[in-house]
Design a protein around this nucleic acid. Structure first.
Length: 254
DNA sequence: ATGGCCCGGCTTCCGGGA
């Protein structure tokens, strides 16, 4: 079973690229972030034509998430139960006996900002909800744009980024708290090329210079860990003419 | 050189992203 996550930074703009990519990679399930579409504008017809059943949860201008799968996802839940949140950031469904959680974690803007405080509240709520969700669904994958670079080796310039958003000790502690729930970073279960990133700034020729961050992740539960056979970042879509600033991350489960 | 790019939107600039 092949699962993937991709922050498309506007599904309207990226739909042709997504359809190409689905045809090439043929994942069994895919979660999207930053669709930036209200639910009435979701391109369900084009995606069904491509062979995918969809669940989606969006809003105007910002955020927005979706779950696409070969088979119809069931038991759909939007956002984090128990957290009052006007922002559309999480969609969860069951596909092939696996509980798939697709999430667009808050950016946080800057430490000390109100948006950072929201990120911390959101992370607390996610952790608390996942604890109960894992008890009900031991076979669980959490994937998406975490907006957290877990370690210095996930940052192109750790000195420049030290203490900056995505790299603060508070954010990294939350990532470790997810690990403590038995959610394993699938990417690090395998030998990986050094300087592997999932996001490159649009500015500064960052992609050409390979200056980026690894902030998009796939975490697999303890019950799934032994069955993971591969995990990697597909840089190819970042070379497209009008790319998202994020690349997709893929995982293979035996 | 503390900004460079890209997105949506009550669009010709602005806020947000990361």
């Amino acid at each position: 079973m092949k699962l993937a996550t991709w922050n498309v930074n506007s599904l309207s703009v990226r739909l042709p690229q997504l359809l190409d990519w689905l045809a090439q990679q043929q994942p069994d399930a895919l979660v999207l972030q930053e669709t930036k579409l209200t639910d009435d504008k979701f391109p369900v017809a084009a995606l069904e034509e491509a062979g995918y059943r969809c669940a989606w949860f969006g809003q105007k201008t910002y955020n927005g998430v979706a779950l696409l799968a070969r088979e119809t996802p069931t038991q759909i839940v939007c956002n984090i139960p128990g957290l009052e949140d006007p922002q559309a950031r999480v969609i969860t469904g069951t596909v092939g006996g696996i509980r798939v959680v697709g999430a667009y974690f808050p950016n946080g803007q800057a430490p000390e900002s109100e948006k950072f405080a929201y990120k911390m509240r959101w992370l607390e709520a996610l952790q608390s909800w996942l604890r109960t969700e894992l008890a009900q669904h031991p076979r669980l994958v959490l994937m998406g744009d975490f907006n957290i670079a877990p370690e210095d080796r996930d940052v192109h310039d750790p000195v420049a980024w030290a203490g900056q958003i995505h790299c603060t000790p508070e954010e990294r502690a939350h990532f470790q708290a997810l690990a403590a729930l038995g959610l394993h970073d699938a990417f690090r279960l395998f030998e990986q090329p050094p300087r592997s990133w999932s996001w490159w700034d649009y500015r500064n020729l960052a992609f050409r210079k390979n200056q980026g961050l690894r902030i998009d992740h796939i975490l697999v539960s303890e019950a799934l860990r032994a069955g993971v056979t591969a995990c990697g970042i597909d840089k190819a879509p970042r070379r497209n003419e009008r790319p998202s600033d994020h690349a997709p991350v893929l995982v293979e489960l035996g």
